[in-house]
Design a protein around this nucleic acid. Structure first.
Lengths: 175, 175
DNA sequence: AATATTGCTATGGAATTCATAGGGACAAGG
DNA sequence: CCTTGTCCCTATGAATTCCATAGCAATATT
């Protein structure tokens, strides 16, 4: 006979919200494609709703829901950037900023194993601290120090830059 | 007037499958909670369907679908571990193995920002190459070398070990 | 007064997920 | 050979989430 009561409860070992596994716990917060893309935009300096929507290509509900959840989870803080009309920008908290190594690791894997080599690197980082190219890892290729976002000088591949500009145009075009 | 034709096509800048952004491209493959948990299990040495199902707590369809997709995406290879009856185990390819830094980064962020300190670290790694504790980063705290999965000696926190054993029991209990 | 800008919310249908149940292929024990 | 057990999935239907499209509110601009 099959089990009759299998609903998940708080004490259920199948409930991952209290799992001791740090990966499972992290995934409960960021285990979603749009969430990661929203964070990517915040790391790349886009703080406004419309920009995030345009670059992630998500629907406005998806963006609104993710930003709301990220705020509830403490990764994002909303700050007004205009009083009249009242407009909010979205900014990373310390907890959100600490997510950067995950983005870097995803970037490295994506560049190496998902993109084709002929597409070239999309982003080149220079490590402001030591002045050398930072490479693809999570620590600087030149000096060995862990890479923090604010120490990086970003240079976009021209094709990738065009792609991002094209999304802004496409977004404006059907507003 | 609103735009009339907004379906996404191959040339649409909103189609991320050909985006030059490595993060977006990576997320198309691994931007899913169950997928990441399946990979975690493969990294932790569980290669059989039932084990993966028990530890991820996903439904069998979810596990089957994710494994199938991971195989199609080249991260996982299926190998028979028994001829009669014919049974397959799931193993990481080079591409799948290269995903380890992302798992490490998620682990670091999860341990530091999602779990409460009193829960303690769930996993402690010793770097076999240098013999020292590897720490929480993606490079060894002791020797500075990037951490590869096969160079790590794993020590599970007793409470975390019990949690994993409890999931095996719970799984058997309602089979 | 008319139009544009920005940041969302509303709606309905399509797709996905989940809990639960079951099935096929074999092995082992009686 | 007949039942019971193991392992690896597949089937089903209900609940949930997602997406495309449309629209609204509060201003600023002309």
């Amino acid at each position: 006979m099959k089990a009759t009561v299998t609903k998940r409860t708080a004490a259920d070992p199948r409930d991952l919200t209290r799992s001791l596994c740090p990966v499972a716990r992290a995934e409960l917060v960021v285990g979603d494609r749009w969430t990661v893309l929203v964070l990517r935009e915040l790391f790349s300096g886009n703080h406004r709703f419309e920009q995030i929507q345009a670059q992630t290509t998500a629907t406005p509900q998806m963006v609104a829901a993710r930003l709301k959840q990220l705020e509830a989870d403490g990764l994002v803080q909303r700050r007004p950037y205009s009083e009249r009309p009242l407009r909010y920008g979205y900014h990373l908290t310390e907890k959100g900023d600490a997510f950067f190594p995950v983005i870097l690791a995803l970037r490295q894997w994506g560049e190496t194993w998902v993109k084709s080599p002929k597409e070239g690197l999309s982003v080149n980082y220079t490590h402001a601290t030591c002045g050398k190219p930072a490479g693809l890892g999570t620590v600087c290729e030149g000096c060995g120090q862990p890479l923090r976002r604010k120490d990086l000088i970003v240079a976009l591949n021209p094709a990738y830059k065009r792609e991002r500009e094209a999304r802004v145009e496409a977004f404006k075009a059907n507003r």
